[in-house]
Design a protein around this nucleic acid. Structure first.
Lengths: 153, 153
DNA sequence: TCCCATCATGGGTGCGCACCCATCATTTGT
DNA sequence: ACAAATGATGGGTGCGCACCCATGATGGGA
C-alpha cells in the first residue's frame, strides 16, 4: 500500500540547489560527527587549517579570512588553546593583536582530522568512481569560488 | 600588508566534503532567504512538493517520505494551512489519520517557489555553463541517492 | 597630548533544526 | 470486549550558528 514509497519529490530533486543543500548537509553532518569525537566543531578545523596553511594569524585575520565573527573567533581559539592545539601570544609590534600559532600537537591533530575528512568524503562520494569524483570536485571548486567572490566584494 | 589575503586554506578546499558543505550551505541559505519572503522555510516547500508530486498524504506519510519528525510535520502543516496552501481532512477509512491535500492556492504558491528556486540555482551555478550544470546535477543526483539509501536501510 | 580607531574579550540574543515525551483518539488483533 | 499498536498533537530541550553590544587595552594621527 505504500506504493508511493519514500521517494523524494521530483520537484525537489530536479533542483540543483536542493541537491546541493541536501548532500552538503549530509557531508557537513558526517564531518561534524567525526570532529565531535574529539570535542571539536567545523570552525575548529577551519582555524587549524588556516594556521597550518598560512602560518600564525592575528585573531582579526582569522576572522576576515574565514568569515567568522571576531567575537566567535575568540571562543573557538579558546577551545583550541585548552587542549594545547594553538598558542596565543601578544604581537610585540602591535600589542593589541594576539598572535595565534599552531603547536606541533595541533598540527598532528589537524592531520588526523584531515584523514577523517578524507574518509568521510570517500563514504559520501562512494557512488562515484574516481574520475567522477574529480570532476565533481572541480565543478564545486568553481561554484565555491563564485560564491566567495560574490560574498566578499 | 594583507599579503596572505582572504584565501580559504587549501587544506579545506582540497576536501570535497568541505566544498559540498559550503556550497550547500550557500544554496540553502539563498533558497531559504527567498522562502522567508513568503514567511516559509525549506520544509514548507518540501511538503508542498510532496503533495504536488504524489497527491494527498497522511501526515505520517509525509514524515517518512521527507524524513521529518512526525511532531514537526504537525507544525509545518499548521503553518501551511494558515494561509490556505493545504487542507486537512480526516481520512474516513481510518479516522486517526489526517489527510493533507494541496489547494489550488497552494499549487500556485509552489509554482512561484519553484521559479524562485530556479533563479537561485542560476545565480549559484553561474560560474558553470549549461553543460557543466547538467553534469553537476547528474553527479549530485547519484550522491544524493547514495545518501538516501544509506540513511533508510 | 588627546581623541579616535582598532583589537580582543565576554555576555547575551534569536533562529532553524532535530529530537523526545506525554496525551488523546482511533483502529487492530486476539 | 479489551489490550496493544498507530496516528496526531502540543510542549519542551539542546545544539550550532550567526549576530550584536559594551568594555578595556593599545596604537596612531591631529
Amino acid at each position: 500500500m505504500d506504493a508511493m514509497g519514500r521517494t523524494t519529490p521530483p520537484t525537489l530533486t530536479g533542483l540543483t540547489t536542493y541537491l546541493l543543500s541536501r548532500t552538503g548537509k549530509a557531508a557537513r553532518g558526517a564531518l561534524a560527527a567525526r570532529l565531535a569525537r574529539r570535542g571539536l566543531r567545523l570552525w575548529h578545523m577551519a582555524v587549524l587549517a588556516a594556521l597550518a596553511d598560512f602560518g600564525p594569524h592575528a585573531q582579526r585575520e582569522l576572522s576576515t579570512r574565514l568569515g567568522i565573527d571576531p567575537s566567535d573567533v575568540v571562543k573557538v581559539v579558546d577551545e583550541l588553546a585548552a587542549p594545547g592545539y594553538v598558542e596565543r601570544s601578544r604581537d610585540p609590534a602591535d600589542r593589541r593583536r594576539v598572535r595565534v600559532a599552531l603547536t606541533p600537537s595541533g598540527r598532528a591533530a589537524l592531520a588526523e582530522l584531515n584523514d577523517a575528512a578524507q574518509e568521510v568524503g570517500g563514504a559520501v562520494l562512494a557512488p562515484l568512481d574516481a574520475r567522477e569524483q574529480a570532476t565533481l570536485h572541480a565543478l564545486l571548486s568553481r561554484v565555491y569560488a563564485g560564491i566567495e567572490e560574490s560574498s566578499t566584494p
